[in-house]
């Protein structure tokens, strides 16, 4: 049994069957990649993990809790963090405030009205936030407005915000989409070092095969809403079913 187990999940939108009897098992401490052609249902599956969508049937269990029917913030409090395809950050706040918020959220997850203390008086929070910015190499940009950063930096910031919560499971939705080669490589290095240092379980949805094969310890291939193969990277590479799924897409 892994940390996240998905059993017989079905989801359809109107007549379209987006997910069809999906079974998935993500082992603790591993980097698990979910790949598949466009429209295979990868993002739908991820949305089912974080409470954005509720599957029609089936179960999603995380660390002994069902993730179905509870709100996104409750799922996060169980230890699931998510990096989005387009970075979801607080664009009108500075980079510094962006990193402070998850620090405060960890403490103030249940509402506390600390309206009369000063942000700058919370030294422990500041230390945490600073350490995180150093980790993702953004400390020079801490006074910048988040919206004025490059896309790669935004993604790094978002990752830092997720990591500061020390999640048990980190979900990454195409973490290198739209990044330059150098940024992609630095992101891969960052994820690898995080995995080594913090032993966080990660589930990655990715199109870029070089990223997948350099990161993943296990790969599930999704096509037309079902998992067609699940194996270690070496075996996925030459698998006939995988080739068929991708070539099939190419012919269309």
């Amino acid at each position: 049994m892994g940390i996240l187990t998905v059993q017989n999940v079905n989801k359809s939108f109107g007549g379209l069957k987006a997910l069809h009897n999906v079974n998935l098992d993500i082992e603790e401490g591993k980097i698990h990649a979910i790949i598949g052609p466009n429209g295979a249902g990868k993002s739908t599956l991820l949305n089912c993990f974080v409470g954005k969508l509720t599957p029609d049937t089936g179960t999603v269990m995380f660390d002994g809790h069902s993730l179905l029917g509870i709100k996104p913030h409750q799922i996060n409090q169980l230890g699931v963090s998510r990096v989005f395809q387009t970075p979801e950050i607080f664009s009108e706040l500075t980079v510094w405030e962006n990193t402070l918020i998850p620090c405060f959220a960890k403490r103030d997850g249940a509402f506390t009205l600390n309206a009369l203390s000063r942000v700058s008086d919370n030294k422990d929070m500041a230390e945490k936030a600073e350490q995180m910015l150093v980790d993702v190499d953004l400390i020079d940009k801490k006074d910048m407005l988040a919206s004025s950063m490059s896309r790669g930096d935004k993604r790094r910031l978002e990752m830092a915000m997720c990591l500061s919560q020390k999640p048990k499971l980190l979900l990454l939705d195409e973490p290198t989409a739209g990044m330059a080669r150098a940024d992609t490589e630095s992101t891969i290095e960052l994820l690898k070092s995080i995995q080594k240092k913090l032993k966080i379980t990660m589930a990655i949805i990715e199109h870029d095969m070089s990223v997948v094969f350099s990161l993943a310890q296990k790969i599930s291939v999704l096509a037309q809403g079902t998992v067609i193969v699940e194996d270690v990277p070496e075996k996925i590479k030459g698998h006939p079913k995988v080739k068929e799924a991708y070539l099939g897409e190419a012919q269309v």
């Binding site: 709100k71 979801e88 607080f90 997850g109």
Partner: peptide, 19 residues
Amino acid sequence: MMLRAIKTNQTRLNFTGIN
């Protein structure tokens, strides 16, 4: 700061564990 965060991005705040 939380209030300003609500103004810019409620989704991220939800996914940061804040109701």
